[in-house]
Simulated scan of single mutants.
Amino acid sequence: MQNSMINSSLNIDMMNFSRVFMKQVMFVQVLVGIFFYVNCLMIFTFLKKEMFREDTRYILFAQTLLVDSFLMVFTDVMLLWNYFKYSIHMIPCILICTIVTLVTICSPLTLVAMCLERYVAICMPLRHADISTSRTRLFGFLTIWGISSIAPLFSFIAYLSVVHPSALLSYAVCSVEVMLGEEWQAQTRVLIFQFLFLLMIIIIVFTYVKIMTAARASADNKKSTSKSLRTVILHAFQLFLCIMQFVSPYIEMAFSKKDIYVYAHLKYALFVMFYIAPRCLSPLIYGLRDEKFFYVLKHNALCGFDSSFSNVFRFSNWKIRPH
Rank of each mutant, 00 (worst) to 15 (best):
F141A: 05
S155R: 15
I202L: 08
T188K: 00
T136E: 14
I204Q: 02
Y171W: 08
P152T: 05
V205Y: 10
T143W: 04
I211Q: 03
L198D: 09
R137L: 15
S155A: 06
S149D: 01
F154Q: 02
R137V: 09
E183Y: 14
S166R: 08
I201A: 13
S148M: 01
T136C: 15
A151M: 03
S155P: 09
F193M: 10
S166P: 03
L191T: 08
A172M: 13
W145P: 00
A172Q: 15
L198S: 14
S149T: 10
Q185T: 14
S161E: 03
K210S: 04
A167V: 09
I201F: 14
F141I: 07
A172R: 09
L196R: 01
L142T: 06
C174Q: 10
T133R: 07
T136A: 12
L191H: 10
F141Q: 02
V162N: 07
E183V: 11
L198E: 09
T207D: 03
Y208V: 01
I203R: 02
V173S: 08
V178H: 10
S170P: 04
W145C: 07
I157D: 05
F139K: 15
Q194D: 11
L196N: 01
F197N: 00
A158I: 05
F156G: 02
Y159R: 01
T143A: 08
I150A: 01
V173K: 05
R189C: 05
F206H: 15
L138H: 10
V162F: 06
C174A: 08
I203G: 02
F141K: 06
E182H: 09
F206T: 08
L153D: 13
G140V: 06
I157M: 07
L169W: 13
F193T: 05
S166D: 10
W184L: 06
T136D: 11
L180F: 15
V209N: 11
I150E: 00
L199M: 11
V205D: 07
V205E: 07
I204E: 03
I211H: 02
F195G: 06
T136M: 14
A167T: 05
A158F: 06
I157W: 08
V162H: 09
R135V: 12
W184D: 08
L169M: 12
G181A: 14
I203W: 01
E182R: 12
V178A: 00
P152C: 05
T133C: 07
L153Y: 12
I211N: 03
R135A: 08
I204P: 02
Q194E: 10
K210N: 05
F197Y: 08
G140H: 02
R135I: 11
L168N: 04
F197W: 07
I203M: 00
H164S: 07
P165H: 00
E177R: 15
M200C: 10
T143D: 04
H164L: 06
Y208I: 07
S134Q: 13
M179T: 14
F154S: 04
Q187I: 15
V173A: 04
R137N: 07
W145Y: 13
E182L: 13
S155M: 09
L160Q: 06
T188H: 00
G140P: 04
V163G: 02
L142Q: 03
F141D: 05
Y159K: 03
T207L: 02
S155C: 10
L142V: 12
E177S: 13
E177T: 15
I203T: 03
